[in-house]
């Protein structure tokens, strides 16, 4: 694309946005903003900074719904953003991942707005089922803040998987569950402490302290350039479990199976990667 074309495209986007001439779905997902504004900003991080490598993309269907379940880490949800961009850029069907987020995300000014516009919605059964039953690819991190806020010495150790609500949503809608392991996000902000009183004061789930943050101010917020690998496991067909959608024990077992699969893939990826900051 020539510079002139690129400029023309940017002007077109700005004009459309100022006139309010774009589409959003009922959840607030703004496709144009996600593809043409957010993705170009994140792409250098994805390609150059973290050098993300995707594996097992063939396990993600080209069409139809699926529930992608992953491990969560890295102080801020950078892993979610990279997973989303990876599926958009590197999956042959350029799929949009609709993330399920915690209350806290939507309560927070700007963050909540960003989350909705890039396709996220509240992690609750009605929203999850609505997305899955209308053919969307849905992403969830069942560890939640226990995962992103954990200290660096617990890295790559999966935390508790909540109540397994995600399994239930998949069983009810018949969507396959695809486990995904993300390696690399743990090292971008190695958390060595949590200032709980400050977190409480600011209404945050935790206040991370890393070797550089908050000591170096804004520079301390630059993520470390670790090497990332993302691997999708084989889809778990939920149709055979459909009759167990209301059986807590089955739900728990299936959630545990997903967790073990993710943990196993993490170990394989770590072995393959070697040092965290290799090229």
């Amino acid at each position: 694309m020539s510079l002139e074309d690129a400029l023309g495209k940017v002007i077109g986007i700005v004009e459309r946005r100022l006139a309010g001439d774009y589409e959003v779905d009922e959840f607030g997902f703004d496709k144009e903003l996600t593809e043409d504004v957010v993705a170009p900003v994140l792409r250098p991080l994805y390609r150059k900074w973290f050098r993300v490598e995707m594996h097992g993309l063939e396990n993600v269907p080209d069409t139809g719904s699926a529930l992608i379940v992953g491990n969560h880490s890295g102080a801020i949800a950078m892993d979610a953003a990279m997973l989303q961009l990876g599926l958009l850029d590197d999956h042959p069907a350029r799929r949009h991942l609709r993330l399920l987020g915690a209350d806290f995300v939507f309560k927070t000014p700007l963050l909540g707005e960003y989350a909705r516009k890039t396709g996220a919605t509240l992690a609750c059964t009605p929203d999850a089922e609505r997305l899955l039953s209308s053919g969307h690819l849905v992403g969830v991190f069942p560890e939640g803040f226990k995962g992103v806020g954990k200290p660096v010495w617990e890295r790559y150790r999966l935390q508790r998987f909540g109540r397994g609500g995600f399994v239930q949503a998949a069983l009810k809608t018949g969507a396959p569950i695809i486990p995904v392991s993300i390696v690399g996000a743990e090292e971008i902000y190695p958390i060595i402490g949590d200032i709980k009183p400050l977190a409480r004061l600011l209404g945050l789930p935790y206040f991370p302290v890393t070797p550089t943050f908050p000591w170096l101010g804004p520079f301390g917020a630059v993520p470390l350039p670790s090497k990332w690998h993302i691997r999708f496991g084989e889809p778990i067909d939920t149709k055979e479990y459909a009759e167990h959608a209301d059986d807590p024990m089955e739900i728990f077992n299936l959630a545990d199976q997903v967790k073990e699969t993710i943990q196993g893939m993490i170990h394989e990826l770590l072995e393959k990667r070697g040092g965290a900051f290799q090229p």
């Binding site: 009922e26 209350d103 939507f106 309560k107 909540g112 509240l122 609750c124 009605p126 929203d127 609505r130």
Partner: peptide, 15 residues
């Protein structure tokens, strides 16, 4: 509210 689903049906149980 943030705690409720994005789309309300007549049967939505409010949180």
């Amino acid at each position: 509210s943030i705690r409720d689903p994005a789309i309300f049906t007549e049967d939505t149980e409010l949180r």
